[in-house]
Amino acid sequence: MGRRFTRSTTREQTALAEPSGPLAHDIHWADERRTAIGVTSLLYTALLVMDAGFGTLDMSRGALWTGLAVLVFVILLPLRVSTGPGVLSARGLLMGHTVRTDSLVSIRWADGVAQRMVLRDTEGSVVEIDPTVLVRNPAMWHRFDEDARTSIRRDTLLCGATALRQMAARIDREAARTVFKISGLQ
Rank of each mutant, 00 (worst) to 15 (best):
I129G: 04
G2H: 09
L43Y: 00
P78R: 02
L185I: 12
R4W: 10
V74T: 07
R3D: 10
E18F: 09
A148V: 06
L94I: 11
G53V: 11
T40C: 06
A168Y: 09
E146A: 15
D145E: 11
T132K: 13
L23E: 10
M140K: 04
S82V: 09
H97Q: 13
W141G: 07
D155K: 15
R4A: 14
E123T: 13
P85A: 04
R91I: 14
S125P: 05
G124Q: 02
A15Y: 04
W141V: 10
V72A: 00
T156S: 09
A148S: 02
V72K: 00
L93F: 13
H97N: 08
R120C: 09
A46K: 00
T56V: 15
D172S: 14
S20I: 11
S8R: 11
D155E: 14
G112V: 10
L104K: 03
F180T: 13
T132Q: 13
S103H: 12
G96Y: 08
A110Q: 12
G67H: 00
A161Y: 06
T162C: 07
C159N: 12
M140V: 11
V99L: 06
R11A: 10
S41G: 15
P22F: 15
T10C: 07
T156Y: 03
L76H: 00
T45R: 01
L71R: 05
S106P: 05
V49N: 03
A169W: 04
V70Y: 00
T35K: 10
D172Q: 10
E128W: 03
A176K: 03
T6Y: 07
A139D: 14
R34I: 06
H25T: 14
S183W: 08
V126P: 05
G96V: 08
R91F: 11
F54I: 07
L164H: 09
L47R: 01
A52T: 11
S151G: 02
V81N: 03
L158D: 11
G124D: 03
M50E: 08
G160S: 01
W109A: 13
H142D: 11
V127F: 04
G86E: 02
D58F: 06
A52I: 06
L164D: 02
R149Q: 15
S183K: 12
A17N: 08
F5K: 09
L76K: 00
V118N: 00
R4F: 09
H97T: 08
V39C: 05
L23D: 10
F144W: 03
D26M: 02
R165T: 13
V74C: 07
D172E: 12
A148F: 02
